[in-house]
């Protein structure tokens, strides 16, 4: 019985379009490819041209991933170092070995003012035995 069905189904091989359909199909396909090519972004086209200009330059598939990871790591390092620089600046007053000048002697201790030759630093007032404060000295 399976053979009978097989024979019957084989008749469906005769359901196909005329041969000129396939030539038209190919023309339509080429047109569509051209249209898709025109819709591509300029950068993609530029990249394709570069790749086509060096046909023997085969980039391994994972190389793109490697470059991507390297770019992420590099940007992270740059960001971290920038933030570290800013933090370093703000804590500079704590660790600054520059000499201090006694401005006003008080009973509780001396107010030390770091002397810095760099003009871009805001003045820091450091109280001995107290945390660094940016508050006005009049607050205590």
């Amino acid at each position: 019985m399976n053979n009978e069905i097989h024979k019957l189904l084989r008749l469906k091989r005769h359901e196909h379009p005329t041969p000129d359909y396939f030539e038209r199909f190919l023309d339509e396909f080429r047109e569509r490819q051209r249209a898709e090519l025109l819709q591509q972004p300029t950068l993609t086209l530029l990249w394709e041209r570069i790749v086509n200009a060096f046909p023997n330059f085969h980039v391994p598939r994972l190389a793109y991933a490697g470059v991507g990871v390297a770019a992420v790591i590099l940007s992270t390092v740059i960001l971290v170092s920038q933030q570290g620089g800013e933090t370093g600046r703000s804590s500079f007053a704590l660790n600054d070995p520059t000499p201090t000048v006694n401005v006003l002697p008080t009973g509780e201790g001396n107010i030390r003012m770091p002397v810095s030759s760099r003009s871009d630093f805001p003045p820091h007032y450091v109280l001995e035995a107290r945390p660094v404060s940016y508050e006005s000295p009049y607050s205590f």
């Binding site: 008749l11 005769h14 359901e15 196909h16 379009p17 005329t18």
Partner: peptide, 8 residues
């Protein structure tokens, strides 16, 4: 029906 060629 036109889809069936004469080959059948």
């Amino acid at each position: 029906l036109d889809d069936l060629d004469n080959g059948i």
